[in-house]
Simulated assay, not measured.
Amino acid sequence: MLQERLKDYALILASGSPRRQQFFRELGLDFEIRLRPVEEKHPAQLKGPEIPYYLAQLKATAFNGELKPNEILITSDTVVWHNEKSLAKPVNTAAAFAMLKTLSGDWHEVITSVCFTTTSKQRIVTETTRVKFKKLTDEEIQFYVNTYEPFDKAGGYGIQDWIGLIAIKKIKGSYTNVVGLPTHLVYKTLTDMVG
C-alpha cells in the first residue's frame, strides 16, 4: 500500500483548501500542511491547461531551498475554462453571479494541475474534466451565491454543493478533479515516485 511505501517520506501539502486536505485524509496519507503566500497571477497569453500548470509550479517556487531530502511537496491549482476564458475565484457576489450565468446551459472544462517537488526532481500532472450545466434561472443562481458564498472556488461553484445536485446534467472525466483534486492521479504519481 502507498502509505507503507511513503513511511520514509514526509508529504507537505501546500494548500489551504479544506476539500484537498480531506481528500488526502481519505486516501489514508499522513501529511503536513505548509502554506506560503503566492500571488496567483499568470502570463496573459496562457490558455487552458497551461494556466494551472504554471500556477501549480509557481506555488512550488515559494518553497525553494527549504525542502529536506525526504520531503515531497505537493502544490496544485484548478481553473474553470469556458469560451477561451479562465474563470478563477470570483471576487464578490456580482462576479460569482456573472460566472454562473455564463456557465448556465453550456459545457465547460475544469482543469487541475498537481505539482510534486522534491530536492532532486519535479513532476506535474494535469487532469481535465468536462461538465455540462442545465439552464439555470436567475433565482437559482442568486440563491446559490447568497447561501453558499462560493468565493473560494474556481468558476464560482462547488460541485459538492447544492448547485451540483440541481444543475449538473453531465460530467465526462474525474469527479474528484471538479471538487479540486484528481485523486487517482495523485495516488498514481506518488506510487511512481516512491517506487
Results as ranks from 00 to 15, higher is better:
residue 126 T to W: 04
residue 113 S to V: 08
residue 108 H to F: 15
residue 182 P to K: 10
residue 181 L to V: 00
residue 19 R to Y: 13
residue 8 D to S: 12
residue 67 L to P: 00
residue 20 R to A: 09
residue 190 L to F: 07
residue 20 R to S: 09
residue 58 L to N: 02
residue 7 K to G: 00
residue 162 W to K: 05
residue 77 D to V: 01
residue 130 R to C: 06
residue 134 K to Y: 01
residue 10 A to P: 00
residue 177 N to L: 09
residue 21 Q to S: 08
residue 134 K to C: 12
residue 60 A to G: 06
residue 167 A to C: 03
residue 108 H to Y: 15
residue 143 F to V: 04
residue 160 Q to V: 03
residue 46 L to F: 11
residue 176 T to H: 11
residue 190 L to Y: 05
residue 139 E to N: 11
residue 77 D to Y: 03
residue 137 T to V: 05
residue 85 K to N: 14
residue 152 D to Q: 04
residue 109 E to L: 14
residue 106 D to N: 15
residue 81 W to S: 08
residue 146 N to H: 14
residue 182 P to S: 07
residue 135 K to C: 02
residue 93 T to I: 11
residue 149 E to P: 01
residue 82 H to F: 15
residue 77 D to G: 03
residue 40 E to L: 06
residue 138 D to H: 12
residue 4 E to V: 12
residue 139 E to P: 04
residue 65 G to H: 05
residue 51 I to S: 02
residue 73 L to P: 02
residue 8 D to R: 11
residue 45 Q to F: 15
residue 170 K to S: 13
residue 58 L to V: 03
residue 45 Q to E: 15
residue 157 Y to F: 15
residue 123 R to V: 14
residue 60 A to P: 00
residue 13 L to D: 06
residue 195 G to M: 08
residue 154 A to D: 03
residue 38 V to K: 01
residue 141 I to R: 01
residue 64 N to C: 07
residue 83 N to H: 15
residue 39 E to T: 13
residue 144 Y to S: 06
residue 37 P to T: 00
residue 85 K to R: 15
residue 5 R to W: 04
residue 29 L to N: 10
residue 93 T to Q: 14
residue 166 I to C: 04
residue 131 V to N: 10
residue 100 L to E: 05
residue 28 G to W: 11
residue 138 D to I: 08
residue 97 F to D: 02
residue 88 A to Y: 02
residue 82 H to Y: 15
residue 9 Y to I: 01
residue 154 A to Y: 02
residue 4 E to T: 12
residue 92 N to A: 03
residue 120 S to R: 14
residue 153 K to V: 03
residue 162 W to M: 06
residue 79 V to Q: 01
residue 30 D to F: 10
residue 88 A to K: 14
residue 14 A to S: 13
residue 8 D to L: 03
